[in-house]
Design a protein around this nucleic acid. Structure first.
Lengths: 211, 211
DNA sequence: TAGAAAACATTCCAATTGGAAGGTAAGTTC
DNA sequence: GAACTTACCTTCCAATTGGAATGTTTTCTA
């Protein structure tokens, strides 16, 4: 959701030493958003204050307020920034996966990597916070939906499945299972068992799909 | 949802006016814990303050501090109280389920009911908070583990499965899937699709198990 | 190059937070 | 029934919170 961009382009203008305003602005914005995510991962939502965010970003209180009027604003923008980063992460992982016949296994592994990392923990914080925060929820939902759809597209294209309704169902089952497992990981569940569960799920998927 | 009822006793002793100390103590404790859970569900962890909890419980600030020295103490105790209540909820639901040949379907339905209700939302709040709170995490883990095990026992006894390793794996897969779905429900995902996914999972389970 | 505007910095504040201190009443024990 | 223990209440405080007000620097435009 594009917030107001008063000037036109983010393109390479800074060949000379000086920075254009748009560049300065984008830079502080990014610093604030990254710091926000860091705080969410390290401190959790409850302990994340705008003071701390500003300190980590090396940005003054006023600058923060110039870019994001309220804390909810900042968090909403962080969601978007976050899902973009997760999307990139998944795409990167997809590119580095070796090709082979085991499409389904690869797909599951891919989703697991994308939805169980540290970035995912930050998303979890915001989701849970959003449950009781209507403003945040409204900001998160569309972005999350977009991430889901693009991931589904990537998933199907990677596994080479025809985009049938059944494939989609299996995809969402996988995503939800992985989210549950990610939660288990967060609270320090048994990693070995998680691995077993994931392997079993792959087996089930292959068996089910081949029917 | 049992919020604080300042005057009413847990056991039928109050025929006469006087209450024993143990009763008084247990009563305020329960009131505080219930109020804590209410706050977690309604406000979320971030917005839950001990002031608010005390107000809802109809208990003074000092009394709270007498029973639970610190906020983390209170939360830790709330976890236990919470898992007990969820356990009871599941047992109750199990008792009211009609007997029949569809054991697996019943079991899944049962787990869904237990792990997707409002109480589960409170657990989620505490889990996520515990990720960055070592004290809370230490308090939660054993209790959660106990809940998992007792639920597994109930599950196997209800479905009449032999407690094989495979059954256990399928159980944990179900639990984690349901937790993922519960998360989806919290942020306002599509309820119809969740229903579809759960039905598909039942089908898969039946097919897989019959092998 | 003057001045408008955006980006940024400093300072302050009202409100809320978790927790401590100190006092009172009720129950228990001998 | 007196000493003692537990349960409870009122009041207070230092720290932190999110946000507003106001001042300064940098970039853009005419």
């Amino acid at each position: 959701m594009g917030s107001a961009e008063p000037s036109k382009d983010t393109s390479e203008r800074g060949v000379r030493g000086h920075r254009t305003q748009a560049e300065r602005s984008a830079h502080t914005r990014a610093a604030l958003l990254d710091a926000t995510i860091d705080c969410l991962i390290e401190l959790g939502y409850a302990r994340t204050s705008v003071h701390e965010i500003c300190a980590r970003a090396g940005v003054s209180k006023g600058a923060q307020q110039h870019h994001f009027t309220t804390k909810a604003d900042l968090m909403a923008a962080a969601v978007e920034h976050l899902t973009h980063r997760i999307g990139e992460e998944i795409v990167d992982a997809a590119g580095s996966l070796p090709p082979g016949p085991q499409r389904v296994e690869r797909g599951v592994e891919l989703l697991w990597q994308g939805f169980s990392g540290t970035l995912s923990a930050a998303v979890m914080e915001l989701w849970v916070a959003a449950r009781t925060d209507a403003e945040l929820k409204a900001a998160i939902r569309p972005v999350d939906r977009a991430l889901g759809k693009s991931t589904l597209a990537l998933f199907t294209s990677l596994t080479g499945e025809s985009p049938s309704e059944r494939t989609e169902t299996l995809f969402w089952l996988t995503v939800n299972l992985i989210r549950g497992l990610a939660l288990d990981a967060e609270i320090g569940g048994d990693a070995v068992r998680r691995k077993q569960l994931l392997e079993e799920w792959k087996r089930i998927l292959v068996g089910t799909e081949a029917r």
